[in-house]
């Protein structure tokens, strides 16, 4: 039988988190920006589609801004992640040293794990 964790570390088992409330990604995780092309509104620049980077940090959960752009202002939230991409990953002909990089907040629905790439 499993040992009970200390009181302070226990969570209330009857509480069900909202959709997206638990972040599936952690700092250091390798991720890829999915390739898709929404009509009308998006906040992931085209230059990042299909590019692989690393999670730098989690940003406060927020409403999907593609929906917010059309008037939704409440309801379930997901995380933004600040992602680091080497410049040489984004631009194959980048004119600078390989340690130069770009950092950007990307909404969770745009990211897939690249761990087993």
């Amino acid at each position: 039988m499993a040992e009970q964790p200390p009181e302070s570390a226990r969570t209330l088992i009857e509480v069900v988190p909202a959709l997206g409330e638990v972040a599936p990604l952690r700092p250091g995780d390798p991720v890829r920006v999915v390739i898709r092309f929404p009509l009308g509104h998006y906040r992931v620049p085209l230059y990042l589609r299909g590019k692989t980077g690393t999670v730098e940090r989690l940003v406060t959960p927020a409403i999907d801004n593609e929906e917010e752009g059309f008037g939704r202002n409440a309801g379930d939230r997901r995380y933004y992640y600040r992602i680091v991409f080497p410049m040489t990953e984004i631009w194959t002909d980048y004119a600078g040293p390989p340690h130069d990089n770009l950092r950007i907040e990307v909404f969770e629905t745009w990211l897939e794990s690249a761990r087993h790439a």
């Binding site: 009308g40 509104h41 752009g69 202002n73």
Partner: peptide
């Protein structure tokens, strides 16, 4: 007032 949010403004400009 969330009459036009910043995100709606961005979307409206793109449109």
């Amino acid at each position: 007032h969330k009459i036009i949010s910043t995100e709606e403004k961005r979307r409206g400009v793109e449109a």
